[in-house]
Design a protein around this nucleic acid. Structure first.
Length: 622
DNA sequence: ATATCCTGTCATTAT
DNA sequence: ATATAATGACAGGAT
């Protein structure tokens, strides 16, 4: 009665300040450790009703969660969870002895040690909290409040003994003249919040999973008051939701990282293919049937008129790359490009039909296909070698039918037939065969047919070369090293037209191969990009799904938080014993991680607490 | 007859 | 300076 009178007389003034500083504090560390220090504090003295909880320590560590610190979307989640835990820390509403929970307006939450002593309430001088004039020390011990030691049994002892506000030494504080400490007691039977705290141990087992708070014997808390409040429904639900959200967050964060990191680093395959890759991926190979070398190569080797070429091909088959070319040209040089051979070619070049068809734009090329894919590569090299040996009477080629079909496929003149031997190793990616429309469908033809189609199958440059009586095939011209080419130009006494033609043939041939490579690269790039698009699309769909799920979960949690906040506010009382107007107060989580009860402000400015203006207005009002 | 694709070629630029 | 690679653009043939 005396207390109530003091409240009535002095409370108004202090309430002006207190209301602006009001808050609820729960030490989550001790909370998690099963010690009810904050609640003990509440119980220990009249100053304990209002607490602020440094929940920030919870972030990223609570329940072992490790959330990326740069995820702002999770701020709300953690704030909500803090608030939810804050509410939980008050205990289960079921355990509330009365439906009306006192609003404990306390200026200070002393340190754990102080509270354990109970008779020496300390206080905090923080601006947001009421500073008690009774405590001269003015130390903000709360800020330095260490986590409650595990062996701080004094707290529990005090709690268990504190069946009422006056059960402990702290209760003596508000006795005589201790009017600064304001608290609104229950109108009926003051029940220490310690009991409320203990009452919360019933649910934390399910809610917090493993808090040691369960060690408290339930018998100390008295009979549980069953409540029809939504707590019993909300809390378990919220826990499950939070777990879902947590699992979602934990599951998605690393996945997202890996997806994003891996997705963008995909090789588009634009780089040149290796020789083996090129050979394996050469789409033109099947066109000649299994086990069949390219027609040009086979034909060229089969119809080689000079055994010397065959010989040096076989001898040089062990070499690769430029070695072969060098060997070939060296051999040619040794032969002096035998006049006999050249004479044979010159005889062939005077075909009038060739001259007529010289400018025909058939678009077909013989040399391009044979020289491109078949020439570079060890496998082809070996096959060509064996084939050559076979043609030269040596052991070697396994499939006579293949070589025969290839022979039938491409019978040709000596010059052109040697093209298959002149490998071009200057391209990392062997070009494609260049007669896709014919090579597969063409049936082996008779010699007459072949001879009739020879000229038509020649490329324009081949025709030009034959018309100009050039003693080299297009492939030879194209693939020979530049030094050799220059030597040929100088040493054979070609006319200017022939030199020009040789240069053009070489230029066009190289450009043709380059174009093939370029197109292949382009296709590879397109294919790679298409695959990347598909993969990114799938990733986007996954992320959108997760986003929707997360938003849904967050919405549910937010609603539960709102409901819990309303419930908490409805159970609080102001110093006058009047229920708090839920429209005028709200629970907020400040930047310091503490949850405070703050008056609602008209301009909904998100902030950590009321400013001085608000305080003044509040004070004047009341 | 037309559309589309493939290939060769030219022109240009970069290496 | 020259050769060559790379590539866009175009033309012609094949389907």
């Amino acid at each position: 009665m005396q207390f109530a009178k003091k409240y009535l007389t002095e409370g108004l003034i202090q309430l002006t300040i207190l209301l602006s500083l009001i808050g609820v504090r729960v030490d989550i560390d001790s909370y998690l450790n099963g010690y009810y220090t904050p609640l003990i504090e509440i119980n220990l003295g009249p100053s304990s009703a209002y607490t602020q909880t440094p929940f920030h320590s919870l972030r990223d560590t609570l329940d072992g969660y490790t959330v990326h610190p740069k995820c702002p979307e999770l701020d709300y989640f953690f704030a909500s969870r803090r608030l939810l835990d804050e509410v939980r820390s008050l205990g289960s509403p079921r355990r509330f002895p009365t439906p009306r929970l006192n609003a404990w307006l306390v200026h200070q939450v002393s340190s754990a040690t102080d509270k354990a002593e109970c008779g020496q309430p300390s206080h905090s001088s923080e601006g947001t909290e009421l500073q008690s004039t009774e405590h001269e020390e003015g130390s903000d011990a709360r800020d330095h409040l260490p986590p409650p030691p595990p062996d701080s049994g004094g707290h529990e002892g005090a709690v268990e003994q504190g069946q009422g506000p006056c059960a402990t030494g702290a209760c003596a504080a508000p006795k005589e003249g201790n009017t600064e400490e304001l608290k609104i007691k229950e109108e009926d039977e003051p029940v220490p919040l310690s009991q409320l705290a203990h009452s919360s141990t019933l649910e934390p087992e399910a809610l917090l999973g493993g808090t040691s708070a369960l060690s408290h014997p339930p018998g100390l808390h008295g009979p549980a008051v069953d409540s029809d409040q939504p707590w019993s429904q909300l809390l378990p639900l919220s826990v499950s939701d939070l777990e879902d959200l947590d699992s979602l967050v934990n599951a998605r964060l690393p996945e997202l990282d890996t997806d994003m990191s891996s997705g963008l680093s995909e090789d588009l395959g634009l780089q040149d293919m290796s020789l083996e890759d090129a050979l394996l991926s050469n789409p033109t190979a099947p066109q000649h049937g299994p086990g069949s070398p390219s027609p040009g190569l086979a034909v060229g080797l089969a119809a080689l008129p000079f055994a010397s070429v065959c010989n040096f091909t076989g001898n040089s088959s062990q070499g690769l790359g430029g070695g072969l070319d060098e060997a070939v040209f060296e051999h040619i040089n040794q032969l002096g490009l035998g006049l006999d051979t050249i004479d044979h070619q010159l005889l062939n070049c005077l075909d009038p039909q060739l001259l007529e068809d010289f400018d025909s734009d058939s678009g077909l090329s013989l040399e391009s296909s044979s020289g491109g894919p078949a020439s570079p590569g060890s496998s082809d090299l070996s096959s060509s070698s064996s084939l050559c040996e076979d043609e030269c009477g040596a052991t070697g080629y396994s499939s006579e039918a293949d070589s025969k079909s290839l022979l039938d496929h491409r019978p040709w003149s000596p010059v052109d037939l040697s093209e298959g031997v002149w490998h071009d190793h200057s391209y990392a990616s062997p070009p494609l065969l260049t007669y896709p429309h014919k090579s597969i469908k063409e049936e082996p033809m008779s010699d007459d047919e072949g001879s009739r189609l020879d000229d038509r199958d020649l490329s324009r440059d081949e025709l030009r070369a034959r018309a100009m009586c050039l003693p080299f095939s297009v492939l030879q011209i194209v693939n020979m090293p530049v030094e050799e080419f220059l030597d040929v130009l100088e040493s054979h006494g070609f006319t200017p037209d022939q030199v020009t033609l040789l240069r053009d043939i070489r230029r066009r041939g190289k450009n043709k191969l380059a174009a093939q490579n370029c197109r292949k690269r382009k296709l590879d790039a397109i294919t790679g990009l298409q695959e990347e698009v598909a993969r990114l699309q799938a990733q986007r769909d996954r992320l959108l799904r997760d986003k929707r799920l997360t938003a849904k979960t967050m919405c549910a949690v937010g609603q539960q938080i709102q409901q819990l906040t309303r419930d908490v506010l409805s159970r609080l009382r102001d110093p006058l014993g009047q229920p708090l107007n839920p429209d005028r107060y709200s629970l907020q989580c400040g930047a310091n991680g503490k949850v405070v009860l703050v008056p609602a402000r008209r301009p909904a400015v998100p902030g950590t607490g009321p400013n001085k203006t608000d305080k003044r207005k509040k004070g004047k009002k009341q």
